[in-house]
């Protein structure tokens, strides 16, 4: 797996997370994640699945450096996140990460355009407005630029969120149940958009989902149960075509 580690965008080693128990009777801490080890290759699409409370969102948060593990490491594109302080992690996020949430997380006092411009403005990109306009055009919201989130439908809001995530052209895009708040048809269109953009931009996509259909479309599925990885490498879930697709991508990656 050495070439895999070299080429890995995410390398998780012995990731362990516990929190102090809220129950005063029970002094032993509550373990959320048990010693996880896995890698995600650049360009892969990964689904993290599992029942509620299995630690999916915590894992996603740790990969993004939104939280720190109790033990273990997260290496993101060669940089050891766990060794960084909060501001350094923020900088890594600014440069390499995009995020899409179940509840969209748009800023209510910002218009659609302003929401998309936000991450670009934070890193002080010169052509923030032009970039944001083009991405919003790509997600089909050119007509909705100056609308506020509460003037948009759920699907439109999630498209703004996707545009915001893709605008800085991140290497890794994390999505937390991106279709959880949407009806099936709208959810489907959002997924299509995510995968399309993923292909166009060559982004690595990691999503947490309950939706089996969505998990099916991913290259790989990481299944969590009570904080343990049940199928660290679940290639048996993959269809032939997906494996083929992945191999092609690998070949292209090495050729580059």
């Amino acid at each position: 797996m050495s070439e895999n580690v070299e080429n890995a965008i995410v390398n998780v080693q012995g990731l362990y997370k516990e929190v102090a128990s809220l129950n005063p009777q029970n002094v032993s801490p509550l373990v959320i994640l048990h010693e996880l080890d896995f890698t995600i290759q650049s360009g892969e699409t990964i689904a993290i699945v599992g029942p509620s409370g299995s630690g999916k969102s915590t894992l996603l948060g740790l990969i993004a450096g939104l939280d720190t593990p109790s033990r273990g490491k997260v290496i993101l594109d060669g940089e050891n996140l766990t060794a960084f302080n909060e501001d350094e992690r923020a900088q890594v996020r600014a440069e390499k990460l995009g995020f899409v949430f179940q509840s969209f997380q748009l800023l209510t006092s910002f218009t659609a355009l302003e929401n998309v411009m936000l991450p670009l403005e934070i890193v002080d990109r010169k052509n923030a407005r032009e970039l944001a306009l083009s991405v919003l055009g790509r997600v089909g919201l050119s007509e909705r630029l100056s609308h506020y989130p509460n003037q948009l439908s759920g699907g439109e809001q999630q498209r703004v969120a996707i545009a915001r995530a893709f605008a800085p052209e991140p290497k890794l895009l994390l999505a937390d149940e991106p279709t959880g708040n949407l009806d099936t048809a709208t959810g489907q269109r959002i997924i299509d958009l995510l995968f399309d953009l993923n292909q166009e931009k060559g982004t690595t996509l990691v999503l947490v989902t309950h939706d089996h259909g969505l998990a099916e479309r991913c290259d790989r599925v990481l299944q969590l149960e009570a904080g343990r990885l049940v199928h660290a490498d679940a290639r048996e879930h993959q269809t032939e075509s997906q494996i083929k697709k992945q191999k092609e991508r690998h070949a292209a990656g090495t050729a580059n």
Binding site: D87, A90, Q91, V92, R93, A94, L118, P119
Partner: peptide
């Protein structure tokens, strides 16, 4: 609170 959390999420530093 949300604005800040999101800004931090998309990479803004505390000092920023």
């Amino acid at each position: 609170l949300n604005t800040c959390a999101i800004m931090r999420c998309v990479g803004a530093k505390q000092s920023q």
